[in-house]
Design a binder for these strands. Structure first.
Length: 303
DNA sequence: TCCTTATCCAGCAGCTTCGC
DNA sequence: GCGAAGCTGCTGGATAAGGA
């Protein structure tokens, strides 16, 4: 049972918008691409946990804290024991030597098992502080079928792409019945995670202002800024995808709100932000139908 | 397929408000 | 007071939806 779904986080969505609408420096762009790749991998893993039929609670994307130390958990499965998954969307060939991970070119990369060990230890301590003494089984999941690790010892807590299905089947057949105490634990973890996300230290957004950002509407499917108005729909000249104007404008408005939370939503500002593709009057109507209007004559804005 | 009805948008004129 | 900016209301046309 999915107890806490994964949501694309605010930082990733904002970075996605900035990447599409301005020239990010190479460091920030790489940071965004890595974060997006990681998120895509986690979503791929969700497809496996969603199919589980056993009596378990699946909690995705937890940001927890113990002893002033913050740790992130990609996927947590509470069943007969607690299964912690650290998902990695690595691609390419790597090798393992002296407890370290390397590219084939012999460049060392961060050992994901160390990350797992740290968060597993903090999670165990957090459970103990909440009065739970549960066994935790942590694994690093390499989700991408294009990944290969040479010289991997048999005892590493790792799941390779070809092992995930079998591991899930094993979890599915474990005889177990959920109880209220464990649901209460899950509630506490979700509540703490929500609070920690509010004070999240994991935000690395670049500085930007309205003038830096390219306005316009893009295609919902391929993200290209190549949409043309056709009746009450916007058509993409790159991929051919069509979207209703109202839906596309609202999507663009929410992107504006995410990028500029302190800016007021006015007809003229949104008309400009949409790149003038949709008329100001049409924009006004869409805002009127979907937001609350303040001031009825001049200086009307919407919230 | 055709007809009717509803909905939505564009264009235009006019009103209100602000800044000079 | 005047011009500019921003908004409203009215009208006509286009399009979508529903029913016969």
């Amino acid at each position: 049972m999915l107890f806490k779904p994964r949501t694309e986080d605010h930082e990733l969505l904002t970075l996605g918008s900035l990447n599409a609408r301005m020239a990010l420096d190479s460091g920030k762009r790489q940071y965004y691409l890595n974060k997006k790749k990681g998120y895509d991998g986690e979503v791929m893993f969700d497809a496996y946990t969603e199919k589980l039929e056993c009596e378990c609670l699946v909690l995705n994307d937890l940001l927890l804290k113990f002893n002033n130390k913050t740790f992130q958990i990609d996927s947590l499965l509470i069943a007969e024991r607690v299964h912690q998954f650290e998902v990695k969307n690595f691609t390419g060939d790597y090798f393992y030597e002296d407890k370290k991970f390397y590219f084939l070119s012999k460049t060392e990369v961060e050992n994901p098992i160390n990350q797992l060990t740290r968060s597993e230890s903090l999670l165990r301590q957090l459970f103990a502080s909440l009065g739970f003494n549960l066994p935790i089984e942590g694994r690093v999941v390499f989700i991408n079928p294009d990944f290969y690790l040479y010289q991997a010892p048999l005892d590493l807590p790792i799941l390779f792409p070809t092992q995930i299905n079998r591991h899930m089947q094993k979890l599915n057949t474990a005889p177990y019945r959920m109880n209220g105490k464990l649901k209460a634990l899950a509630d506490k973890l979700v509540a703490q995670s929500a609070q920690n996300y509010l004070e999240s230290p994991y935000t690395q957004l670049p500085r930007y202002c309205y003038e830096d950002i390219k306005p316009g509407m893009n295609c919902m499917k391929c993200q290209a800024f190549s949409v043309v108005l056709s009746g009450k729909k916007l058509g993409c000249t790159v991929c051919g995808f069509e979207e209703k104007v109202e839906s596309a404008v609202l999507r663009t408005v929410f992107e504006f709100k995410r990028l500029f939370p302190s800016e007021k939503l006015t007809t003229s500002r949104i008309y400009e932000w949409c790149g003038g593709i949709v008329s100001g009057k049409w924009v006004h109507g869409i805002l009127e139908r979907n937001f609350k209007k303040f001031n009825s004559n001049r200086w009307t804005y919407f919230e």
